[in-house]
């Protein structure tokens, strides 16, 4: 690291998590610099989602330390640095999270979805929150849908609203968990483009993805999760182009194979 490298925004040390006897995270260390975009790839069940969920602590880790925005938490229950409920809520409000299944609230309009947390968590006035929300909805091209029910939107539109909802909290870090996996292929790009533009603007992002081209083009670093550990990490040119471990080679091979299969299937449909 060069001398004037900024201090990391997020610092994780030895993050561990088990479900019963199943060790899902076996000691993850990670530092993320401000503005960095880190992609996480890995086989199903390797702990990618569990890792993201432990970072914003909707399911806190069992062990490990986390430094973020002046907080220094120890997730060991017995530690006196274990976060209080209020600290956990504050932490979550500073970290945006976007899910595979959008999880918009169907009983609220698009606009209400976006202003709910700024008003309820940050205490913004309705006018203030609406101003921010309108600008965000305008940016994602859905201003004219602000009073519609989210259920009337396409999957891609819903996911963009979910991203806007997270952005309205002005988070320092955004977590994306396979946010395009539930989308029809033709809707994937509108969401990826929005994420790429966020990355361009310097948003710090951690994303779990199966979109290898997106990982290659947008991220500064790629982590390969392998059975609850970081099996390999580095710039995309290295991890995706010149994998070292046989397990990563095998994983990339299977992904490539899937891609080929789906694109052949698509061709079949067109003909």
């Amino acid at each position: 690291m060069t001398q004037d490298a900024p201090p990391p925004l997020l610092k994780l040390r030895d993050i561990r998590k088990s479900f019963g006897t199943l060790d899902v995270l076996k000691g993850i260390d990670l530092e993320v610099a401000p503005g960095e975009v880190v992609s996480i790839i890995g086989a199903s069940g390797s702990g990618k989602s569990t890792f993201l969920r432990s970072i914003n602590a909707i399911e806190p880790a069992d062990k490990g330390r986390m430094e973020f925005e002046g907080w220094d938490f120890d997730f060991d229950r017995d530690s006196r640095f274990f976060p209080t409920d209020r600290q956990l809520q504050a932490l979550r409000s500073r970290i945006g999270m976007v899910f595979q299944s959008y999880n918009l609230w169907p009983h609220k309009t698009v606009l209400q979805n976006v202003i709910h947390a700024p008003m309820g968590v940050l205490g913004q006035s309705r006018t203030e929150a609406t101003e921010v929300a309108d600008a965000l909805l305008d940016r994602i091209g859905l201003y004219d849908k602000r009073d519609a029910s989210p259920l009337r939107l396409s999957g891609g539109q819903q996911q963009r609203v979910a991203i806007a909802r997270a952005l309205a909290m002005k988070p320092r870090l955004m977590l994306f968990d396979e946010v395009t996996s539930a989308l029809d292929p033709e809707l994937v790009n509108e969401v990826l483009q929005l994420m790429a533009s966020l990355a361009d603007e310097g948003m710090t992002m951690l994303l779990v993805t199966h979109e290898m081209s997106f990982a290659r083009d947008v991220s500064s670093r790629v982590l390969f999760f392998d059975q609850g550990e970081i099996g390999e990490e580095g710039p995309p040119s290295k991890v995706l182009r010149a994998p070292e471990s046989p397990r990563l080679q095998q994983f990339l091979h299977s992904i490539l194979h899937d891609d080929l299969r789906t694109s052949t299937a698509k061709k079949g449909l067109i003909q």
């Binding site: 504050a90 979550r92 999880n103 947390a117």
Partner: peptide, 25 residues
């Protein structure tokens, strides 16, 4: 469960989540 999770992830307490997100539905 995703309805609760998205609310918690934004910083709402479990109680507020129940009151404003879950119970109305």
């Amino acid at each position: 469960a995703g309805q609760t999770e998205s609310s918690l992830a934004l910083g709402f307490s479990p109680r507020e989540t129940m009151r404003t997100v879950i119970l109305p539905q």
